[in-house]
Nucleic acid binder design. Structure first.
Lengths: 282, 282
DNA sequence: TTGACCCAAATGGTAGTACCATTGTGCCCG
DNA sequence: CGGGCACAATGGTACTACCATTTGGGTCAA
């Protein structure tokens, strides 16, 4: 099964794809190191014997992948870049959102990853890191106990701790995957710091987690992680209950405003409105 | 820290980005359902009051993200698509490759994920799935014992089993992340089936794993997983030894052929060569 | 009636040109 | 010596014209 298609539609349209592929190959092949620049668009135009639009489209694709960065002006051009984890995060977040993945599944995944991280961190993390985590968690608790603290600030701190925690596994893959997941679902974590009860419980639990980790007590650490996600699940469940009501209102609201961008206008003469508000600057 | 920049360089260049953002918002906002099509490029040109090139660049970006699919001809246009997990995989693979992540770290990550999956699969998987895994692993073993079997075929089967295994966790996130990781590192798994010894050991181990899983014996299952990755680590290590030699040869070879694409030609009059072999079809 | 064929319209793909905006460099003048 | 200005390189945008592909309908013949 899964044979190579015998007749691939050779070179059917899409020269830009071809160009992008060749440029990508040159980059990943190490022909152009990060920091160096590709030839200018007009040079590439000559090299590939094609129009400038094709080159620009190809560069757009590479830019979208995060492989290059484009700068205007003299000494401008397309510079090869280190790919940022944010690119992966964005891609993943987009996918998960579109798949309407249940928060429960993401939470389960994160929990199992956290347990793995804890296991590795206990073995591999330096004592300095362990201390940093302990202090960070205490700082979080201090912040959480002040009622005026903004939940976003707390969420940010939580995210920071999570990343530090992941880094302690000494395995960058964990750090990256965790970062990618967090990027798309920060709203969940923020919600955890909305309610005063959850806020305090979560912060205290962080302190316990850090202490257990520092003590090398995997069992207690694992229990703490379990408790963390128990809180998160509770919180998400209670939020979902509210959100359901909000969504119902929102949906009936959206049904009223018929701002569609599609082609389904059988009888309507004046399709999409699309007020261009940002465009009077030309 | 991490304040929102007070003065964002408002609308500096890059109208295509603006267009892409608005279209993306329309898509993720559900204004255009998958399967439906956006207006044609020429219509969008009017809607956004911009040149067609800008529209095309924006569409290229969305296409790169996997959100749309573009078809030529009458009734052609840009159709909103379900994002494929392959997009995430590609993004992740590109990132990992560029970060020169050590195989060891990826393997560790996969191992810990496999253990989590096993835990969940024992609880959640249906008996039909468990049986399917058992039969699949036996089929793999049968194939592995025939010396003539192609290693790629075995690798493909292995990949299939892995995916089935991940699916048994009943959590799609595991399946997707596993799929994404495999896509970028299939060569490792293929290597496992190159040597006759590793081939047989791995296949037998798969059978044991499936049996343990079906029996609900988490301990034995976990041990099998450990053994699997022990084999993989051994295999990768022995491959790396060979690869090191090859790389040295390859590097000195690359140093000879000076086909550079960068701008560093202080004295050279005729920069990049770039024979266009695919282009005589116009 | 049915089938084959062809042509027109819609749409994406490519080429080319002209011009604008931005930015670094270096010359020129005070 | 220093500030400012002109210039050149480069990306960003607009517009036009034309090509290639695909669909659908219309026409003509069997």
């Amino acid at each position: 099964m899964n044979e190579i298609p015998l007749f691939t539609p050779a070179r059917v349209g899409r020269a830009s794809e071809d160009v992008a592929l060749q440029l990508e190959a040159a980059i990943v092949g190490g022909k152009v190191a990060p920091g160096q620049s590709l030839p200018s668009e007009r040079e590439l135009q000559n090299v590939f014997k094609t129009g400038r639009g094709v080159i620009r489209e190809a560069l757009m694709m590479l830019r979208q992948k995060g492989m290059i960065e484009v700068r205007k002006g003299a000494k401008g051009g397309t510079y090869v870049k280190q790919i940022d984890v944010a690119n992966v995060s964005e891609s993943l977040a987009l996918f998960l959102r579109q798949k309407q993945v249940e928060p429960r599944h993401v939470i389960d995944f994160r929990e199992s990853m956290d347990r793995s991280i804890a296991m590795m961190a206990i073995v591999h993390a330096s004592s300095a890191e362990k201390q940093a985590l302990a202090e960070g968690s205490k700082a979080l608790l201090a912040m959480a106990l002040v009622p005026e603290t903004d939940q976003h600030e707390l969420g940010e701190k939580d995210r920071e701790l999570n990343l530090l925690f992941a880094r302690m596994s000494r395995n960058p893959v964990f750090e990256w995957v965790m970062g990618a997941l967090q990027m798309g679902f920060s709203s969940q974590d923020y919600a955890l710091y909305e309610d005063a009860y959850f806020r305090e419980q979560t912060a205290r639990n962080w302190v316990d987690t850090a202490a257990a980790l520092a003590a090398g007590d995997l069992m207690r650490c694992s229990a703490c992680i379990g408790r963390h996600y128990l809180l998160l699940r509770d919180c998400v469940a209670s939020c979902a209950a509210q959100a359901d009501v909000a969504e119902l209102l929102d949906r009936s609201d959206a049904a009223m405003t018929g701002t569609s961008l599609t082609k389904e206008y059988p009888d309507q003469a004046d399709p999409p409105k699309y007020e261009r508000k940002e465009k009077e600057c030309l």
